[in-house]
Amino acid sequence: MSHQLNQPKPFTMTTMTSLNNQWSSDICDCFDDLPQCCFAFWCLPCFTCKVSHDAGECLCLPLLDAFGVIPPMTTALRVSVRQRYGIQGTVCHDCIYACCCGPCTWCQISREIQARKNPITFVNMAP
């Protein structure tokens, strides 16, 4: 008689149901968080490093944006945050926002990370 052992699979639940698959704020809602907006305006390199760190990425990665026409790290972090939270969108749109609205993009990413900082509850599900 063979007994099969199954590990319980975690079920992730969050209380942020109102956001679903959309950004919690628009790209131009920078003034919704005035301290972050001022920080980004007065010292964008420091702000981008802070946001990158808050997103769990290397602190200095945004500094690589200075070496290209298309800001690769801004685009990559926006894609990463969008995928992490299940936000709809395309890499093309992320790239356009990163190129045309860089500081606003970083502010939006920062607001999204702050809005989604909810405790996650793990519930064991029986197989």
Rank of each mutant, 00 (worst) to 15 (best):
residue 1 M to I: 14
residue 1 M to K: 02
residue 2 S to M: 11
residue 2 S to I: 01
residue 3 H to F: 04
residue 4 Q to V: 03
residue 6 N to R: 11
residue 6 N to S: 06
residue 7 Q to D: 15
residue 7 Q to I: 12
residue 9 K to M: 05
residue 10 P to K: 00
residue 11 F to E: 09
residue 13 M to E: 10
residue 13 M to S: 09
residue 14 T to F: 00
residue 14 T to I: 03
residue 15 T to C: 13
residue 15 T to V: 03
residue 17 T to Y: 05
residue 17 T to W: 02
residue 18 S to W: 06
residue 18 S to L: 06
residue 19 L to P: 01
residue 20 N to Y: 06
residue 21 N to Y: 02
residue 22 Q to L: 08
residue 23 W to T: 09
residue 23 W to Q: 11
residue 24 S to H: 04
residue 24 S to F: 01
residue 25 S to N: 11
residue 25 S to H: 06
residue 25 S to C: 09
residue 29 D to V: 00
residue 31 F to A: 15
residue 32 D to F: 13
residue 34 L to R: 11
residue 34 L to P: 08
residue 35 P to R: 07
residue 35 P to D: 08
residue 36 Q to F: 10
residue 38 C to G: 14
residue 40 A to S: 10
residue 43 C to P: 00
residue 44 L to G: 12
residue 47 F to P: 00
residue 47 F to I: 00
residue 48 T to G: 07
residue 49 C to M: 13
residue 49 C to E: 13
residue 49 C to P: 01
residue 50 K to T: 08
residue 53 H to W: 12
residue 54 D to T: 05
residue 55 A to P: 01
residue 57 E to W: 03
residue 57 E to T: 03
residue 58 C to A: 12
residue 58 C to N: 11
residue 59 L to M: 09
residue 60 C to E: 13
residue 62 P to F: 02
residue 63 L to R: 01
residue 67 F to Q: 11
residue 68 G to H: 05
residue 68 G to S: 13
residue 69 V to L: 12
residue 70 I to M: 07
residue 71 P to E: 15
residue 71 P to A: 09
residue 71 P to R: 06
residue 73 M to N: 12
residue 73 M to H: 11
residue 73 M to D: 07
residue 73 M to I: 13
residue 75 T to M: 13
residue 76 A to D: 12
residue 76 A to R: 01
residue 76 A to Y: 06
residue 77 L to Q: 10
residue 78 R to A: 07
residue 78 R to I: 05
residue 79 V to L: 08
residue 80 S to I: 04
residue 80 S to Y: 14
residue 82 R to Y: 08
residue 83 Q to N: 14
residue 83 Q to P: 02
residue 83 Q to L: 09
residue 84 R to K: 11
residue 86 G to P: 02
residue 86 G to T: 03
residue 87 I to Q: 13
residue 87 I to K: 00
residue 87 I to N: 03
residue 88 Q to F: 08
residue 90 T to E: 11
residue 90 T to M: 09
residue 92 C to G: 15
residue 92 C to P: 00
residue 93 H to P: 01
residue 96 I to V: 13
residue 97 Y to A: 14
residue 98 A to S: 12
residue 98 A to F: 01
residue 99 C to Q: 10
residue 99 C to P: 05
residue 102 G to I: 08
residue 103 P to C: 08
residue 103 P to F: 05
residue 104 C to W: 01
residue 104 C to Y: 08
residue 104 C to F: 09
residue 105 T to P: 04
residue 105 T to A: 07
residue 106 W to A: 07
residue 108 Q to H: 06
residue 108 Q to I: 00
residue 110 S to L: 06
residue 111 R to P: 00
residue 114 Q to N: 14
residue 115 A to I: 00
residue 115 A to N: 04
residue 116 R to Y: 10
residue 116 R to V: 02
residue 116 R to F: 05
residue 116 R to H: 10
residue 121 T to Y: 09
residue 121 T to D: 12
residue 122 F to C: 14
residue 122 F to G: 10
residue 123 V to C: 10
residue 124 N to I: 05
residue 124 N to K: 03
residue 125 M to Q: 12
